[in-house]
Amino acid sequence: MQSIKIHSYVSNDGMLHLDIPVEMKETEFEVTVTLKPIKKQTASSQQEELKQLEWHEFIDKTYGCLADDPIMRHPQGEYEQRELIE
């Protein structure tokens, strides 16, 4: 048994057309279809998802860019000694 998950769109005629490629030919199959409507995203949730995708793309592009030129922290100097607060 094999599970295949696909996303499809139902047009105005109310008909769902499924084209599912299978490896076996001239074989009978028992097919079970489960319909689960996809919740439409609001504009704000789409923008939030886009921001997350842009952030992940930025990280993917810049990850390791300073590997050959590591950042060095120079000595910070002496700090004044303050009296303890009681």
Rank of each mutant, 00 (worst) to 15 (best):
I4C: 02
K5I: 07
K5D: 09
I6H: 03
Y9F: 15
Y9E: 14
S11F: 08
S11M: 06
S11W: 08
N12P: 03
D13F: 03
G14V: 00
H17S: 10
H17F: 08
L18H: 03
P21A: 08
P21W: 06
M24H: 10
M24L: 15
M24G: 05
E26P: 00
E26H: 13
E26G: 11
T27Y: 10
T27L: 12
E28F: 15
E28Q: 14
V31F: 07
V31D: 02
L35E: 05
K36L: 11
K36M: 10
P37N: 07
I38Y: 07
I38G: 03
I38V: 15
K39I: 05
K39A: 10
K39R: 12
K40L: 11
Q41I: 06
A43Y: 08
S44D: 04
S44Y: 02
Q47F: 06
Q47T: 02
E48W: 00
L50H: 09
L50W: 07
L50E: 14
K51C: 05
K51M: 13
K51E: 15
K51R: 14
L53W: 06
E54I: 01
H56R: 11
F58Q: 02
I59D: 02
I59K: 02
D60K: 06
T62C: 02
Y63P: 00
Y63S: 05
G64L: 01
A67Q: 12
A67M: 09
D68V: 06
I71G: 00
I71P: 00
M72I: 14
M72G: 00
R73D: 04
R73I: 08
R73P: 00
P75K: 02
Q76R: 05
G77D: 01
G77V: 00
E80P: 03
E80T: 08
E80R: 12
E80I: 10
E80A: 15
Q81C: 09
Q81V: 15
R82M: 04
R82C: 03
L84M: 07
L84D: 04
I85D: 12
